[in-house]
């Protein structure tokens, strides 16, 4: 698995540069969603979603299963289109380089192609853009280095651990140097230790590349540790009920009182959010018809959300 020629950066002339270079602080938002609505047949999945994301910002979308978070992510990725509203991605000068994609998507499952080595999996997006082999390899190896997988370039996915597969999937999303990285519960299947490693990895990459990230999660801690702001979703139809800024210095430790305080407060908002009844006009069908609504595993409702609003929870 080793033994392949590792092209040196200087020789091939490709280096990691910040994917997104946003000079002015108060630039217009990179992503602007206005009144996004989406239905699948009679089922309203998203209703009137507004969201603005600044360049370089990390945004978490949090809420129970089946509240349309993933659909919103698909719309952001261009894999799906909204029925109503507008989605604009601000113009940028940085998207001219070949093999560069404005938006990349990291799915919930790693979706590594089993018949390709790690190297070839990571190269997929560059092959699509017909980047010539030398530059392709160079960029692939840069990303593998960034996620600490360069020794496993020649390995097949079945030979990797869960954490390594996640890293490979991350490298595959990053190699197209996206301005916006979308992540759909990307680390939810990892054990908690590997998950926090991946969090640190992601923040490190964010610091190096300056990319914008939007991620879906069930996990309040994950949202607070990573995000600059958290958009809280309510289901049926999916909509954003509140946007909570997280103004804490990084790195954020779960031992830090400010961090735990923010987690506690966010949990409170999620639990006691008095799910307002859906907007009046509504062709929406009866609860959960056709929609997969399952109780959360240890996520939001699992941790004492049934408590009545007056009860203070001691444990966190």
């Amino acid at each position: 698995m080793s033994g392949q020629v590792l092209p040196s950066q200087a020789e091939a002339g490709c280096r990691i540069i910040p994917f997104a270079d946003h000079g002015l602080k108060k630039a217009p938002p990179l992503i602007r969603l206005r009144g996004i609505g989406k239905s699948f047949g009679p089922l309203r999945v998203l209703a009137n979603v507004d969201l603005q994301v600044q360049a370089g910002e990390i945004t978490a979308l949090i809420g129970s299963s089946g509240c349309g978070k993933s659909t919103l992510l698909n719309i952001l990725a261009g894999l799906d289109t909204q029925d109503h509203g507008t989605y604009t991605l601000a113009e940028s000068k940085n998207s001219e380089k070949a093999g560069r994609q404005r938006v990349a998507y990291m799915f919930q499952e790693d979706r590594l192609l089993p018949w390709r080595t790690v190297r070839d999996n990571v190269a997929l997006g560059l092959e699509a853009a017909r980047i010539e082999k030398k530059e392709r390899l160079c960029r692939v190896y840069n990303m593998l280095k960034l996620v600490g997988l360069e020794e496993f370039a020649g390995a097949f996915p079945y030979q990797l651990s869960g954490g390594m597969r996640s890293r490979a999937a991350l490298a595959r999303s990053l190699v197209v140097e996206p301005e916006v990285l979308l992540l759909d519960e990307p680390f939810s299947k990892l054990d908690s230790q590997t998950r926090s490693q991946m969090h640190a990895e992601l923040l490190n990459i964010h610091a190096v590349t300056g990319m914008t990230a939007v991620f879906v999660t069930h996990d309040v801690e994950e949202a607070v540790v990573l995000a600059d702001k958290v958009a809280i979703f309510a289901p049926r139809p999916g909509r954003i009920t509140e946007i909570v800024p997280v103004e804490l210095a990084r790195p954020r430790s779960l031992l830090d009182k400010n961090v735990t305080e923010q987690i506690r407060s966010l949990r409170g908002k999620l639990c006691f959010n008095p799910h307002p009844s859906p907007p009046p006009d509504d062709s929406a069908p009866a609860e959960g018809a056709g929609l997969h609504v399952s109780p959360l595993k240890g996520g939001i409702t699992g941790k004492g959300c049934r408590a009545s609003p007056g009860v203070k929870r001691e444990s966190l």
Partner: peptide, 21 residues
Amino acid sequence: KQYVELAKSFNLSRLQILAKI
């Protein structure tokens, strides 16, 4: 289908999806 969706997210053409997936 998930691999096809993945390929689409990387803007692979139909011919590339045929050949690579």
